[in-house]
Simulated scan of single mutants.
Amino acid sequence: MTFTDILGQHHAAAPSARIVSLVPSITELLCDLGLAPQLVGRTGFCIHPADEVRDIPKVGGTKDVNIEKIRKLAPTHLVVNIDENEKPTVDKLAEFVPNIVVTHPIEPRDNLALVQLMGGVFCAQERADAWCREFESELAQVHAGRPQRVLYCIWKDPWMTVSRDTYIARMLALIGWSIPEIGDARYPSFQWSDALVRDVDRVLLSSEPYRFTEEHVDALERQIGKPVQLVDGEMMSWYGSRALQGIRYLKGLAAAD
C-alpha cells in the first residue's frame, strides 16, 4: 500500500477532535499545526516540541501500547504509521476509536500529502498550506552533489542498516548518496567484511535509534579505514514538520562533502 492510496481513505474534518498520536514525528507535526490542545495521548518517544508535549499523557511506546489507558482517554482519532505501529494493536484500538488515520510516507515529497492530510482532517488547513509552500521551496533548492555510496547504520550488536526501500534512503538520494543492497529486508543486519567496505565510500552512524557517538566513529574508522561520520537520525528519518529542517540538514551534508 502506498501513501497516496491511504490518502484515498477520507476522514471527516474534526475541529473538536481528541487525538492520540502513536507516531513521534507526527505528534511534532500536529503541535506545529497548532493542534497540541487537542492531543490527549502520545507515546513516550513523542518528545518534540518538549514544552508542548510535556503535559500530554503518555500511553506507552510505539509498539508496547497501553490499550486500556487509551480507552480511558476517549479519543475520537488515532494517528498511526505502518512502519512504526503494529497492526494487531491498531486493530484492537479500532474497536473503540472511531477514526484511525493511517500514514506511510516513503519519500520526501510524501510530506506534502502528509501535512495536507493532517491539516484537512483536523481543520488546520492554513498552517498546512504555509508549511507546504516553504517545504516545496526548500526541496527545489536541493541538488545532487558528487555521487557517494554510503552505508547508513542504525544499530550495533547486531549491526543493522537500511535498504533502498526506505524514507532514509530516499532522503539521501536527494543529494546523490546511494545505499548498497544488503539482503531483502528493509532494515537488514550485516557483518563487516572487506567486500562490504570496498563497496562503500563512507559510513554514516545515525544518532537514533541506536545512540551512536563520536567514540563509535573513531573506533570504526580505525577498524575499516574509510570515512565515518555521525549524522542526526531525526533529521534523516523524521517525516512531518521535522522534514523541513531535514532538507536543510541534507544540503549542509552535501555542501560539506
Rank of each mutant, 00 (worst) to 15 (best):
A94H: 00
E126R: 11
D257K: 11
D51Y: 00
E134G: 10
D157E: 15
L30F: 07
M236V: 09
Q245N: 13
S178T: 15
L22F: 09
A14F: 02
T4S: 12
G233Y: 00
W192K: 05
A144M: 09
L35C: 00
I6C: 01
E215W: 04
A140L: 05
D257R: 15
D194I: 00
A144P: 12
L244S: 05
G225A: 00
G233D: 01
K58P: 05
S241N: 12
A12C: 07
I168M: 14
T4F: 06
E134H: 12
R222G: 08
A74W: 02
W155H: 05
L78M: 07
T43L: 01
A254V: 13
V97Y: 04
E138Y: 04
S137P: 01
R54Q: 04
G34K: 03
Q125V: 04
E208W: 01
G120H: 11
G44D: 09
A50T: 03
P158S: 06
Q191M: 11
F190Y: 06
L253T: 01
C46W: 11
L139W: 10
D5T: 15
D184H: 12
L230V: 13
D257S: 15
G61D: 07
R211G: 10
P105L: 05
S189Y: 09
E28A: 07
L196N: 08
R222L: 10
M1R: 02
D110L: 07
R146C: 13
L22G: 03
I182L: 12
A128P: 01
A255T: 13
V20E: 10
E107M: 10
L29N: 02
C132Q: 07
L204F: 14
L174W: 03
